[in-house]
Design a protein around this nucleic acid. Structure first.
Lengths: 159, 159
DNA sequence: ACGAATCGTTGGACGCACTAATGATCGTGC
DNA sequence: GCACGATCATTAGTGCGTCCAACGATTCGT
């Protein structure tokens, strides 16, 4: 939002959905800036992290594990491969697949991103005490679980 | 995110910034769906609400009050004007300006949107008790205030 | 009267999420 | 053994929200 100068409060300003969205915006900007300061963005971190924790895998598998849409994997991997952080190699046992793996440069970049990320969490939660941070995290987790569940169950009726 | 099916938890899943973003996503979808069920989107509500509370005004003024970028006001007003919810008239006293005003159809639409919005808040916070809702709102407000303040102060050095 | 500021508008960008369509390739049921 | 359906990678395009750069037209300050 460009102009935070508000004399008269707007009707939507107190709504939880608005509060959530705005706070998430700040968080997003914080994290995004942190990432872009080392030439990366969210998808890069998510892919690198997934790659480290589950080892080399096909794009589709990585997409499932990281929650990145298959369509967006292509560009993300292109970008990372261009920077030499990741390698794309054909799978000899299944010619449809590419096997993506983390290079050592990729690992170093991941370390950098993790560091930035931790710093951002702290900046984000700066005005909150440790107990408050804990409570906020717990409340958000509950909300998220609830809504993720709803999303999962209504799609299950396949088969 | 397309695929919430995760066996192994990912490293970023517990981070406040992630929780915030995901929850905000659900909220955004909820509200967006609510709005689109009456043929509107977020900017429409914000503009209509601003219009009601501050009366007819120029696009620039409305942009400042609603936090909608001047560039985006054009399309928003076009869409609302096409639906007859808003009227664009030249300002006789300043030919640069258009004066935007709310029609009665616009007011009715605003009522609908407010109703949907309230329903969405409830759906969003469904798993939380009234006290928890209160606490969440308070924590988020604190965070938001903190970060909005930071944004405001560093730009002040005009004049 | 002149330059600075404001107003509306256009056209573009970005990040994230998602849909649809295509051509390869694989696997299974029959 | 092979046809059909599923899976994989890729391209292209949508949507929302946010923002930037540039433009002509107009008005304001001095």
């Amino acid at each position: 939002m460009e102009n935070p100068s508000e004399e008269t409060p707007t009707p939507w300003e107190g709504l939880p959905s608005w509060l959530l969205g705005q706070t998430a915006n700040h968080a997003h900007r914080l994290v995004g800036d942190g990432f872009s300061s080392v030439g990366a963005r969210g998808y890069h971190y998510r892919l690198l992290a997934t790659l480290e924790e589950s080892g080399p895998a096909s794009q589709a598998a990585l997409g499932r594990r990281s929650g990145i849409h298959l369509s967006d994997m292509v560009a993300t991997i292109n970008e990372l491969a261009d920077r030499g952080l990741v390698e794309r190699a054909p799978d000899p046992s299944d010619r449809r697949r590419n096997i993506i793996s983390l290079t050592s440069a990729g690992k170093r970049q991941l370390r950098r991103l993790e560091k930035r990320l931790a710093e951002c969490q702290d900046e984000l939660l700066a005005p909150l005490s440790p107990e408050e941070r804990q409570r906020l995290t717990e409340l958000l987790s509950r909300l998220l679980d609830h809504h993720n569940q709803r999303a999962g169950t209504s799609e299950e009726p396949w088969r």
